[in-house]
Each structure stands twice: as structure tokens, then as C-alpha cells.
Amino acid sequence: MKEAVTRVRLVYIGGAVGLLIGLAVILTVPVRLARGQEEVTSKIYRYRERVATGYYEGYEVSPRRARAILETPGIKRGLFPYGSSSAMVRIRARLPDSHKGLKFYYRNTCIECHPEQARNIHSVRAGITCRQCHGPEPIPAINHYYSAMNTIRRHSYVCAKCHEGATAAFASFYVHEPPAASLETRESFPALFYTYWGMLLLLVGTLAFFIPHSVMVGLRELSEHLSFSVPHTLMVGLRDVFKKLVFFMSHSFLAGFRKFSQKLSFFKPQNFLAGYRKLFKKKEAFKNETDNAP
């Protein structure tokens, strides 16, 4: 008993010391208040065309470079991932009209080609349509320099229409979230994938222990001899009915199992031998019969 107490105490003191060391380590990390975004200053002044860019080039706040999406499966990255002719078709992320050259484009709706993109909270719950964010025709690619969806101005041109005061860091929320459980998400958005599966493991693990546990407690307590009387007579009656029901069900199940096992009795070694014995006996009987025959 005393040893157990000292061991428990050791564990707790060890845990507390570990926590204190962790806190001390955390305190040594320099505090940066706006960790979600960073300030960028540049001296680039470009010739501005007709379209206002919304990009204050002298002084800008942009999302930090902590990217969530590492890679998109099926899309190659790099300097020249595709040949020149296939690049015309496959790399549309910087075109002024992202649907340029597609056959029968005007006869389709968005969801016919992008069915998964409609499965998100913005469109399902709030009823926001594609065009409310992606704009009218021609729909520019999101990385096109003058696109409203370009990350340099998405927060002010798109998100802030509903979320007043949206910042660039806020706008790095993924509206078209990849399915958290899928293996493709492990490649594209690993933080989401591992968090999802970790939490699911916690959920399933807890329930997988405690649901059978409580069922077993309930069943075992039914067959327990109590040294005190349960005061609710009506409930005792109900309980006895339930008890009989459980006994009836379990007995009928066992009887069925017994019949089933009798069918399989050949596999029991003693029955196996008995069967052989019977066989031999029958043969002997048969022999005797033939011997006795005239």
C-alpha cells in the first residue's frame, strides 16, 4: 500500500516537473502576436491598368507562408510540369478565363463538372451560390493577377462581403474542404487528415471499451444475488420479466447452437473415432450377414 502511494506520487511529481519544463520551454519562444499573418513592404510600383487590383503595393498584410495544402493529387507542380501543348489544357490556374476553350461551356451548370465543390457548408447551409464568390463570366482563375479570388485581395473582395473585417489570414480558410477521412487528404491537407483520424480513434476507442463494458455490467448484475431488497416492487416485476426473457433467449440460442454443433460433431475427435467404430461394426455385421447367407 505504502509502496503504491510512493509510486503514484512519483508518477504525479514526474508529470508535474515535465509540465513545468514544457511551460518553461514555451516561454522561451519569442511571442509574435499576429502569428496568423505577416506584414510585407515592397517598393514595386507597377503600371495599373483599368482594373483596380486592391493591392496596396507599398504596404501589405498577407497570409503567412504556413500552407495547409501541400500538394493536390493529380496535379503536377514545378517549373515545367507539362509539355507546352498539354500545359494549355491542364494549367488553368492563371488564365483570365479559366474555362477558355471548353466545348459546350454555356450549356452546363457549375455542378455538372464540379460536383464535389457543392458539398461545403457555405453552399449547403448558407445557400451561397458559386457565382457569389467566383464572380460573373468570364470566371477568372483564382491565381490570375486581377482575379477577385486571388489571395492578395480575396479577403477584402470576397470574404468581407459577409465576414466584416476579414483579414488575409482569415481568408486562408478552406471553403472547399477536402474530405477529411480520405487518403488523398493525407497528401494534400495532412493537418486535417491526422486530426480527423486522431479524434476518431479517441471516439471509437472510448465507445469500444465502455459500451461493451456497460452491457456486460448490466447482464452480470441481472444474475447477481443481492443481499438487500430492491424497494420498487413494480420495477422488480418488470426486471423479472426481462430476466426471464433474457434466459429464454439465451437458452433458445444455446439449444440452436447445440443442434448446430451436433451437425458438426464429426469434427470432434471422440465422435470421429466413434463413427469409425460404427463403420467397422457395420462392416462386421454385413460380413456376418453374408457369411450366414446360404
Binding site: 502576436l33 496568423g36 481568408a171 478552406y174 486535417l192
Partner: peptide
């Protein structure tokens, strides 16, 4: 979310 995305990126909200 506006306050919390001063400290975490917006995709942290997905997580």
C-alpha cells in the same frame, strides 16, 4: 474567428 486568425492561420479553423 477574426480574433483567432490573428494567431492561427485560417485553415486552422477547418481543423
Amino acid at each position: 474567428p477574426l480574433f483567432s486568425t490573428r494567431f492561427i492561420p485560417g485553415w486552422g479553423l477547418n481543423v
